[in-house]
């Protein structure tokens, strides 16, 4: 479904994508794991064409998004749904209008049909009855579910999730995980999840890609990752503070820096 080839992205001298190669299979859930600053969110933004890459290609459904025209990109975007980290609901519209928004913009569906579709999507995320509330009246977990309902309202082929469970309590995390899994199995939607939540990742993933400072250090099934011999992978999935992945950011020697003042 999505194929990434030699993708490179730099911010000044900081390399955030260092020649990445990976595939996101149709109908599968692929989780991109990595610590903060590992370049996983930037990868997601490049996969969706929100950010231009410096070089390399992202093939989405056969079209290279890195050099596609705006028209072509927008055409492909209609097949994508995205759940943002902060849900990105429109704060001036109520829940119903938020979910109906893409339908109103891109289709000429009659009002009663829109109502039916929105009700169905809200039922899928278990929030029927909240239609007239404003986004600010919902909890974090609930706004994520509304965001998800909005992401699937156009029946996309692929859904991108940007840290869907960060900042949620364990039950909400479980609910979101189940929703991601359900959407994948029931509607055969390809899912790309960016996360640093190891437990939830092991629950839902068909394939895991682990990023570390702009490089893919491992990719494979849950079992393959769990049994990985790579010390960095082990450190990451066990959450150990000491290991090959450094805690500090600077390359300077601590003692040197203290002594030279």
């Amino acid at each position: 479904m999505i194929r990434v080839e030699n993708l490179v992205k730099k911010y000044g001298r900081l390399v955030v994508s260092n020649g990445l190669n990976c595939r996101f299979e149709e109908g599968k859930i692929t989780v991109i794991l990595g610590g903060s600053g590992s370049g996983k969110s930037t990868l997601l933004r490049q996969l969706t064409g929100l950010e231009r890459s410096d070089s390399g290609c992202v093939y989405f459904d056969g079209v290279d998004l890195t050099c596609a025209s705006k028209k072509k990109l927008y055409e492909k975007r209609k097949k994508m749904g995205m759940l943002f980290q902060g849900s990105a609901l429109f704060n001036y519209l109520n829940i119903f209008e938020n979910i109906a928004f893409p339908l109103r913009e891109h289709t000429r569906i009659a009002e009663n049909v829109i109502k039916t579709i929105v009700t169905m999507k809200l039922e899928m995320v278990g929030l029927r009855g909240t239609e007239n509330l404003m986004p600010s009246q919902l909890s974090g977990g609930m706004t994520k579910r509304v965001g998800l309902a909005r992401a699937i309202v156009m029946d996309p082929k692929v859904i991108f999730y940007d840290e869907p469970t960060s900042g949620l309590d364990p039950i909400s995390t479980g609910v979101i995980d189940k929703l991601i899994k359900d959407l994948n199995t029931k509607l055969n939607i390809t899912s790309v999840v960016v996360s640093h939540d190891i437990e939830s990742c092991f629950r839902i993933a068909d394939k895991i890609i682990i990023l570390f400072s702009g490089d893919i250090i491992a990719q494979g099934t849950v079992e393959e990752i769990k049994n990985s011999k790579d010390l960095r992978v082990k450190q990451f999935i066990n959450g150990e503070p000491e290991g090959p992945i450094p805690f500090t950011r600077t390359d300077k020697n601590y003692l040197d820096e203290l002594l030279t003042g």
């Binding site: 929100l50 975007r77 749904g81 943002f84 990105a88 928004f101 891109h106």
Partner: peptide, 9 residues
Amino acid sequence: QFPALEMMA
């Protein structure tokens, strides 16, 4: 909300 609009084409 701007990238959200972008993602909705």
